[in-house]
Amino acid sequence: MSDTKQQVAFFFDANRCTGCRTCEVACKVENGVELGPRWRKVRTVEGDQDGGPYMYHVSMSCNHCEVPVCAEACPSGAITKRSDGIVIVDQSKCIGARLCAWACPYDAPQFSAETGKMEKCNFCSHRIDAGTGGPACAEACPTKALQWGTLDEVAAKQGATAEFGPLPDADITQPAIRFIPLKLVRS
């Protein structure tokens, strides 16, 4: 990334996700996350449309929102947003009040039973800062269902939308993620 001042973002294409969870595990391996907290989660959505069942997956972590309500809610100022938009948590300041977890519409803040502190996706900021790549999850995705870039880049992808299926109203936090919803053709 040439300009680190631009908001970074995720991109998720439901038509390419097989639900393999490689992103989840890549995240844990890259960041040394122990059992319990899950910085990234793939959820399966099931439903019915036009009389037929459908199913798709959504891979999400912290969406590094443009309006980080977690940071607003945090009483101890442990959550901050960097100039490149990455929302990071300083665990030394976290007191474990869990207000962030209530405020976040995406279940991104995770609590470690071991430390009692909140932890969450940091967009692999260590890799971004070192110039060694992007988030491990996106780079590990075998089908490129999950990608990353600047918000402008991912928003420019064809069919990309901020609102997606059962996800919360994007206006709440203005998440830095864009989706391509499942195309339910079924003809």
Binding site: V29, E30, N31, G32, V33, E34, D90, Q91, S92, E119, N122, C124, S125, H126, R127, D129, A130, G131, T132, G133
Partner: peptide, 19 residues
């Protein structure tokens, strides 16, 4: 393929070690 760089303090676990 993965040149090393200064990892920020506080990056947990393996990644920090590798970086």
């Amino acid at each position: 393929r993965y040149p090393t760089g200064g990892a920020p303090a506080g990056v947990p676990g393996a990644a920090a070690a590798a970086a």
